[in-house]
Design a protein around this nucleic acid. Structure first.
Lengths: 349, 349
DNA sequence: ACAGATTGCACAATCGATGCAGCATTGAGG
DNA sequence: CCTCAATGCTGCATCGATTGTGCAATCTGT
């Protein structure tokens, strides 16, 4: 920098190179051929620009071109394995396309969600992804008013394309695994498998509960009352419910399908207070994945959602210019107990 | 929206209200009092703007005011508990200040890091935070050229203020705990505590290793050769090293301090292959925290870094207008084995 | 009733990059 | 020698919001 305080602009480069600002703009961009700027001029301008440490002002460019080069994503929270993976993929795909990702978390508050969408619109993001939307219709309304293409992820909306995890298949497969792995004691009520955690008003949980019921019915033992305990995501309430259940049954049931890692933390809080032998009479499954959960005192069947695949599909929808409210499914992956190291080490090793 | 495709601008509002664009701008902003716009006019303009769903174009505003309202942060990766917590806090503090956070991950690549900083500069972010910088000097050079205030987090730089975790204290305390908790067998070499994982070229690891050595020395048993095994962060190499160590010693050492969760995954891979009783002769510590790691087959002493505190300090530096390369420390928290539920549940529950 | 102050607003320049519409200059062709 | 086309560039308006300046109209005091 020769001049102390401000960043160089095309006018500075124009003055230094003796060319006009429009020539500089063309020379530094892609359009210099079609605007018949000679190669020599382009070289000169580029070297001067490089020497001055010039870089374009995206606000000015965005204002003029009515595109910002930004792509927005709303997620419920950063501090969560699943959504953090989404962020990582979201960013990677954005970069592939030369876009800059802006990720904001809504804390699952509809009001916050709307505020964020509004903000991203004022920054003129070129596209927007909304993961785990709490009020998809409101979001679509705002985006449509701003003429902004958007895709829902993980939780579908009616006003735009959506990509969701195949919660039904994931939960059905997991249930079937638990059913076939469960130890049979003969005591009827203890031979059942219980579903714990999640909110039935939540789209993903509803699909999973539906799959759980169907899989049990298909196996010849339709779920009885109280076999689905959708007590929310908080560890504490999951711990309370599993304790109450064990108390009611006089011991652990043959199997437990825990819906979410946070609920699993609560279940774990109770299980870890039991003698290890008690656990051998039960099979545990968890919808969602954590590498450390694979090393507990007992085997845990887990489901890993394909965050990368979800985001890949979402970008594909943008690339293909789809705007109808289609619904695309991405399959989650079943993780057998204790197989973590086979996979993880081959990636990171 | 009365008009189909484009967003309303102040000129639209001006036309509809019969006022001039500058009056509209003032009325919608903070400056209408000092520009002596009557309250009645302000009301009229605001209601028309609301009816039109007007919201400002930040690119235009940013261009004019030379501020974007964006605040950037570079992190190594999203998909990591520590950095995800930082993102969460970063965003919360940004919102408090009416700023929009832009978080990008460098994958620990110096080149990528520079590219990101450059990009954030072209978007005219008002401030920038760089966590886990790989090339702090280059970053400072770029930011200074663009006249951009920035703060280093977790890994210090020489060209700007830095906020780092007190790695020395965290590791020293953890080492002391392991020392006092370790079972004494009498077999000299097996009574030692080993440090596994991390990269000594990395600032944080170097501080921790230094603390580990000092704490051992202070306890009267200075570390021998091979007692610090800084084999990187990959699970696989940590697994290999712990296996080799056990082989060399003829069993587990009295204690292991594992430097990072990823290395811990590897150590776990080996430990889980041993009979549970072997583990009772050893005390395990891990620098970094995971709630599930608190429920393994054996107790684990963990250190939780204060991501929220780091970010709070970083913002404080910005607020206080500090630009000298000061170094501020934030203390990490020691987590005793199996105490997770006492804490977590009171937050979420 | 008239100078001077105050109120309430409009005009125009500006931020930096872009792109359309020209405008000299050179060379070729008749 | 003159026309026409190609070449290589410049000038100017524009994107939407902000801000310094200016200027009527009304009000205040005497």
């Amino acid at each position: 920098m020769t001049r102390a305080s401000r960043k160089a602009t095309i006018y500075d480069i124009a003055r230094l190179s003796g060319a006009s600002a429009s020539t500089v703009s063309a020379a530094l961009g892609e359009s210099w051929r079609e605007r018949r700027i000679s190669e020599a001029t382009v070289e000169t301008i580029r070297s001067i620009a490089a020497a001055q440490g010039y870089s374009a002002n995206m606000q000015a460019r965005g204002l003029r071109k009515a595109r910002s080069g930004l792509v927005g994503m709303v997620i419920p929270l950063h501090d969560n394995r699943f959504f953090a993976s989404m962020s990582q993929s979201f960013e990677a795909f954005a970069r592939e396309r030369g876009l800059v990702p802006v990720i904001a978390s809504s804390m699952r508050e509809p009001q916050e969600e709307r505020r964020i969408v509004e903000t991203l619109i004022t920054y003129a993001v070129d596209y927007m992804f909304i993961a785990g939307a709490t009020d998809p219709d409101a979001v679509s309304a705002m985006c449509n008013a701003a003429n902004l293409r958007h895709v829902f992820v993980d939780l579908p909306g009616r006003g735009a394309p959506s990509v969701v995890s195949d919660n039904y298949k994931g939960a059905a497969d997991l249930t079937r695994r638990l059913l076939s792995d469960r130890p049979i004691t003969g005591a009827a009520c203890r031979d059942r498998i219980y579903f714990i955690g999640g909110d039935p008003a939540d789209y993903a949980s509803a699909r999973r509960i539906e799959a759980f019921r169907d899989a049990l019915t298909e196996a010849g033992s339709p779920p009885g009352p109280g076999q689905v305990i959708a007590c929310g995501y908080a560890p504490r309430s999951a711990m309370r419910e599993i304790a109450a259940l064990c108390n009611r049954l006089g011991g652990l049931p043959a199997g437990v399908l825990v819906n979410s890692l946070t609920a699993f933390e609560g279940v774990l809080g109770h299980l870890s207070s039991l003698p290890l032998d008690d656990l051998r009479g039960s099979v545990i499954g968890c919808y969602d994945y954590d590498p450390f959960a694979a090393y507990l005192q007992f085997p845990v069947h887990m489901v890993r959602q394909d965050a990368h695949g979800l985001i890949r599909e979402a970008y594909r929808i943008i690339d293909q210019n789809v705007t109808d409210p289609v619904l695309r499914m991405v399959e989650p992956e079943q993780i057998a107990p204790r197989t973590f190291y086979d996979r993880a080490f081959s990636d990171q090793g």
